[in-house]
């Protein structure tokens, strides 16, 4: 699974993108975020408050209950501000 981080999420995790292989029980977005938090203090900080977190799977915005599969590209970022 490919993960991408943008804006302050990228700054807090310290990573632009990475490939990860979460365990099988991590089958939706909420479970992925819980799993990421355990990966280190910078992840715990980045995902401490998820109220301002948005998630896209394969370029589509999704809710936290969206299902994941191992070939997905998952992006985690703050609310967008285009224009």
């Amino acid at each position: 699974m490919k993960l991408l981080y943008f804006a302050w999420v990228r700054q807090q995790t310290g990573v632009n993108e990475e490939c990860v292989t979460p365990p099988n029980h991590v089958n939706n977005v909420a479970a992925l975020i819980d799993w990421l938090r355990e990966r280190g203090p910078q992840y715990a900080r980045a995902f401490e408050d998820v109220s301002a977190l948005r998630v896209a799977i394969n370029h589509e915005l999704v809710d936290f209950d969206a299902k994941l599969s191992k070939d997905d590209e998952v992006a985690l970022f703050p609310p967008v501000t285009g224009g």
Partner: peptide, 29 residues
């Protein structure tokens, strides 16, 4: 323009006087 504001995946970092701030999404947008 209205849809760009709320749907286009851009993020803006403002910097000035030694401060830096990510622009937050606006309710009126």
């Amino acid at each position: 323009v209205d849809w760009l504001k709320t749907k286009a995946p851009f993020w803006k970092l403002e910097e000035g006087n030694g401060n830096a701030k990510w622009v937050t999404a606006r309710m009126d947008d």
